[in-house]
Design a protein around this nucleic acid. Structure first.
Lengths: 197, 197
DNA sequence: TTGACAAGTGACCTTTCGTTCACTATAATT
DNA sequence: AATTATAGTGAACGAAAGGTCACTTGTCAA
């Protein structure tokens, strides 16, 4: 006993919420997937909503630690090819990491119902990505790698098409390979457009 | 009697599904919002799933008629400013039309559960938009308005940031004005980048 | 006028849901 | 050794879900 069941419940909840949404998930299945009976869950959480809130706490904390913090910023690329490489590393991680995939799906499914999910979704899908690449592009402009321009506009123009293809991977995983290739092609096209010759 | 109740049910279903999702919607509330009792709904649809399927049929047909058909393509702009104007017309419509908003939300919420919703979501959010603007940019290249380049790549690069901000409007309607302004700024930046001088 | 039918009602059924509770087994504490 | 806390069980509960059915009512065709 006493074996991190609370964590296992949260993991299972993430999995089920990301597949069926909050309303489409029931405690019976959730506990069964952990090999225990549904009342056992209530020894660790007082309600379904408490599970949801704890999961959101965890997601918010995870995001803050891994994406929201300034010290976790990727280094400024040294060459156009470096930007492509760095981008593809990030993309390959985010497209294949199960936990990150499920987090995106949950935020997608609950963004209209829960305020915290709404806010985190906007960070995850829009402002967070843009902020990271604003710094990157500002750095690359200083290094003379890309033409001087509004770095936040470039970041927006760069990250949103990539984000759209990441969403496609979540929706149709069998298209993931194509999507990743398309991202790389887009990245090269982007650097060809904005890079200095 | 006999007053298009079937249509009214579908309208109410679109509204409720787009707010609470399929699983989060119940027939009692749905019928109550139409001023009738839940068994009345079953005179028009044999089950909740039948409502869902009919709604999807309707959404697919609507998309085919208004976006998927070649004859409904917007004309090729005659100037860079024309592209901005046309874009903002489309954006202002899509961001404010209740039915279109609710359709996007439903597709967002059910894309992981229902195959037809999945396919329509990809069309709606990705391939459909890209195809339309591929033709537009090809036409603009022929007119010498923008530099020769891969039109489908440009269409992708143009539509996805716009799409991301449209999703933001769905998620946080109070930010809609800002988002629309940002779309216009992006559109101008895009044409400044790819337009011939 | 009557008969048929479509549309809507209200009571009811079954299932499933989230949640509670008395109880048990185990491990740690005193 | 006795006690206490923790984690888990299984039965049960009330509410809410989707769905059925006998019945009523209004409309129109024969």
């Amino acid at each position: 006993m006493a074996n991190g069941t609370k964590e296992r419940i949260l993991t299972a909840a993430l999995e089920m919420f990301s597949q069926n949404g909050y309303a489409g998930t029931n405690i019976r299945e959730l506990s069964a997937s952990l090999g225990l009976v549904k009342s056992g869950v209530y020894k660790h959480f007082e309600s379904k909503e408490a599970i949801w809130n704890a999961l959101l706490d965890q997601m918010i904390a995870y995001y803050g630690e891994n994406f929201g913090s300034p010290e976790h910023l990727p280094p400024v690329p040294d060459s156009p090819e470096d930007l492509v490489t760095m981008t593809m590393q990030m993309v390959n991680f985010t497209v294949h990491d199960e936990k990150v995939i499920m987090t995106r799906k949950v935020l997608t499914l609950e963004q209209f119902r829960d305020d915290r999910a709404r806010n985190l979704a906007t960070k995850h899908f829009l402002t967070g990505l843009t902020e990271i690449f604003t710094r990157i592009f500002a750095g690359m402009m200083n290094k003379g790698l890309i033409r001087r321009d509004d770095p936040s506009m470039l970041a927006f123009a760069y990250t949103m098409p990539i984000s759209a293809l990441i969403h496609l991977c979540d929706r149709e995983p069998e298209k993931a390979e194509d999507a990743v290739r398309k991202i790389e092609a887009f990245s090269r096209h982007f650097i060809a457009t904005y890079g200095v010759k």
